[in-house]
Computed example of a mutant assay.
Amino acid sequence: MAVWSSAAAPVLLIGGWTLAAGRQPGGFDSTVGTISALAAENATDRWLMTAALIGVGLCHVVTAFGLSPAALPGRIVLALGGVATALVAAFPLPAAGDAPAHAITATLAFLTLAVWPAFAWRRRSASPLFARRRGSFWSAFALRRGSASSAFALRRGSASSVFALRRGSASSAFALRRGSASSVFALRRGSVWPAFAWRRGSAVPWVLRPPVSAAATLVLGGLLGWFALALATGDRVGLAERLAAGAQACWPLIVVCALRLSARRAPASDSLS
């Protein structure tokens, strides 16, 4: 599910602003006009960009839900970004006047979608619960089993020895050896098994490692900073916004694709769900 939702987000966003811009009378300069202007109350066929923004927001929420290898805080921030993106469409720009609700939701959407990689990284994937506990559980079980087997074997040897003294010394010697051998074997099984029971946990895919997550946040944050500067100066606002929004829509897809490739290369027992 995360594959389809992450792939649909950039398609909806880029396709939405392309179709909506083509429907505006007299042409629309995408390097100057913003995405929000295409969903404004006075825009022609504003439903195109409105539906695209709502679809992108829902896609981010679905992707956050299915991106289980990522850390939970990052998934929550990504989902918040999706909700804020949908709210941008719910609070469109008016034909005239200020739009504080639109400004707040748009700012929240851009910020959360820019910083969520910084909260999604992991140092090491956690080992399955059974694998973590199995070593200690079986260690205790095996040691007890070895001790019990030792006592049982020695008792069997002693009993057989007494019985064999009546029948012959050869049976006595065999019984004692059998008891000792069983004792040594049982204790060794108890001691050796824990060494093979523990698991350290599978390596984290490169896309969720701290350096990559930090680099992604810096790039997305840099594009967002350019957009903020463009808003302040009025220079190519539409271009800066589209680059920032497009990169934010594409990064979840890159993360999902990288995780799928890593899961295919890893052994079945260590694959990420």
Rank of each mutant, 00 (worst) to 15 (best):
R132N: 12
R124Y: 06
A142V: 11
W121G: 10
T107M: 14
P128N: 12
A131I: 00
R134W: 10
R123I: 12
I104K: 09
A106S: 06
A131F: 01
G135K: 04
I104R: 10
A120R: 06
F110T: 05
G135W: 02
A103N: 11
A106G: 07
F110P: 06
I104L: 14
G135Q: 03
R132D: 03
L113Y: 01
T105C: 10
R122C: 02
F110A: 10
F130W: 10
W116Y: 07
R134N: 10
F110Y: 12
L108W: 11
S127H: 05
P128C: 05
L113A: 00
F110K: 03
F137I: 07
R134L: 09
A120I: 10
P117Q: 05
R144Q: 09
F130C: 05
F119A: 14
L143Q: 08
R144F: 15
A114L: 00
W138L: 15
S136D: 12
A106N: 00
A120T: 06
L129K: 13
A142H: 04
R132C: 03
A114V: 03
R124H: 10
W116K: 02
L113F: 00
T105A: 15
I104D: 07
R145G: 15
L108C: 13
W121P: 08
R123A: 12
R123Y: 05
L111W: 10
R122M: 00
A140R: 11
P117F: 01
A109T: 12
W121D: 05
R145M: 15
P128M: 12
F141S: 08
F119Q: 02
R144H: 13
A120C: 08
T105F: 13
A142W: 13
T112P: 11
F141E: 04
A103E: 10
V115R: 03
A109E: 02
W138C: 06
F141Y: 13
T112H: 03
L108F: 07
A114C: 04
R132S: 03
A118F: 04
R144C: 14
R124D: 04
S136N: 04
T107K: 09
S125Y: 10
T107W: 08
A114M: 01
R123D: 11
V115F: 07
L113G: 03
A103M: 07
R123N: 12
T107Y: 12
A118S: 09
A120H: 04
L129D: 14
S125G: 14
F141T: 13
A131L: 08
S125L: 13
A109V: 14
P128F: 04
F130A: 13
W116L: 08
A109F: 03
A140H: 06
W121A: 11
W121I: 01
R134Y: 06
L111M: 14
R144A: 12
R134G: 06
T112E: 01
A118W: 08
A106M: 02
A126S: 09
P117T: 09
L143E: 07
S125E: 14
A142C: 07
F137E: 02
F110I: 08
L143A: 07
W121Q: 10
S136Y: 02
P117D: 00
L113S: 08
